[in-house]
């Protein structure tokens, strides 16, 4: 890894040049208290000082909520065509746990096969991360996801009068060399960076105690009373999944035109919290009860991918906590259930 320093005065110019040369996506203010990742053509629209998380996670750039996978036309033969949008893009201002979210999806969408709709966009995406103080619902520190080791091209940390820049790829280095006036990081820069990281790690208000969670997970999973209590408030609305930076489940729809000649296959974000998720042909539903759906979602986040990939699939960004109208809080639930089964 290369470590560079970008002067505060040249930061705006650096971004302005990137905005001019690339399709540039960054956080912009959306409504009263919400922000969203959007395409930016004017640097004044960029607003990195958002207190909450962005509404939708950055995965929407690589894995849109609705995406045409395939179009077909039935003549004598069936003609099929694919068109995955893939221009060079820069994603700017994404924080460490969101970078870890993308890392998880990279792994997931390349696990058994390469998901071309995802990777056609991923290959052309330059990720420039930016450290920011944790929002109230962010508990990524507890899961070890508050720091991004990789998965970015550049990662900036604001040290008041300058930016500490971690260079994560050759592409990142090329961009930095071409568009920014930087110098190598020295001893003082590292010292200040470490000081920032200390303060940052001390700023997490929400914590989940994950000690012994893995080994006792079956005990937790089978604690029916607990899941029934949490699920009592749940609307089964699916919001927690749909705002999650690592939820990958999708449904594929077949849409044909009325002439029955042309059609398309479309995938759209799905959620395991919706009753129809477990519905199969013949009408059987594997998870008709919301308590079962809820505990399954928690298991997917906290256990399943430890077994599969050696990592939590939850990055602790806190979006599900913010989005839940019933105020269901995964971090507090981890702490509560652990106390209940005394582990």
């Amino acid at each position: 890894m290369l470590y560079k320093v970008l002067k505060k005065g040249s930061y705006d110019l650096f971004l302005a040049k990137l905005i001019a040369d690339f399709e540039f996506i960054g956080p912009v203010k959306k409504d009263k208290a919400t922000h969203d990742f959007k395409k930016i053509s004017d640097i004044r629209k960029l607003d990195v000082n958002y207190k909450r998380t962005t509404i939708a996670p950055a995965k929407k750039i690589l894995y849109p909520s609705t995406e045409t996978l395939l179009q077909y036309e039935i003549n004598e033969d069936i003609e099929m065509s694919v068109d995955y949008e893939a221009g060079e893009k820069i994603l700017f201002g994404i924080d460490a746990c969101d970078v870890n979210g993308l890392n998880f999806l990279d792994r997931f969408f390349s696990d058994e096969m390469i998901d071309e709709p995802y990777f056609s966009k991923r290959r052309k995406l330059t990720v420039i991360g930016l450290d920011r103080m944790p929002s109230d619902t962010n508990f990524s520190l507890s899961l070890g996801k508050e720091y991004a080791k990789d998965g970015f091209d550049l990662f900036l940390t604001d040290l008041n009068n300058r930016y500490f820049v971690r260079v994560g790829s050759e592409k990142g280095n090329d961009i930095l060399t071409k568009y920014a006036d930087v110098s190598d990081a020295g001893e003082d820069d590292f010292k200040d960076y470490n000081k920032f990281m200390d303060t940052y790690r001390k700023s997490f208000k929400l914590k989940a105690d994950i000690n012994n969670l893995y080994d006792n997970y079956e005990l937790i999973y089978n604690n029916k009373d607990f899941w029934n209590r949490v699920a009592k408030d749940c609307y089964s609305c699916g919001s927690c999944c749909l705002v999650c930076p690592t939820c990958f489940c999708f449904n594929v729809r077949d849409d044909m035109e009325l002439n029955l000649k042309k059609g398309a296959k479309t995938r759209e974000w799905d959620s395991c919290m919706i009753p129809e998720y477990g519905l199969v042909a013949g009408g059987h539903n594997f998870r008709p009860d919301k308590e079962n759906r809820l505990k399954q979602r928690y298991r997917c986040k906290l256990k399943t991918f430890i077994d599969r990939f050696g990592t939590y699939s939850c990055v602790g960004c806190g979006r599900c906590i913010e989005a839940c109208l019933a105020k269901i809080n995964i971090a507090e639930d981890i702490n509560a259930v652990k106390k209940e089964v005394s582990v």
């Binding site: 919400t34 959620s271 919706i274």
Partner: peptide
């Protein structure tokens, strides 16, 4: 669909009506 309007709002990236101080039946 037999899922609530929240699903479509989240897919579209809408700000939740409750965050805007409005009442919404979308969740049911």
């Amino acid at each position: 669909p037999n899922y609530p309007v929240c699903v479509e709002c989240k897919r579209l990236g809408n700000t939740c009506m409750y965050d805007l101080g409005k009442t919404c039946m979308g969740v049911v």
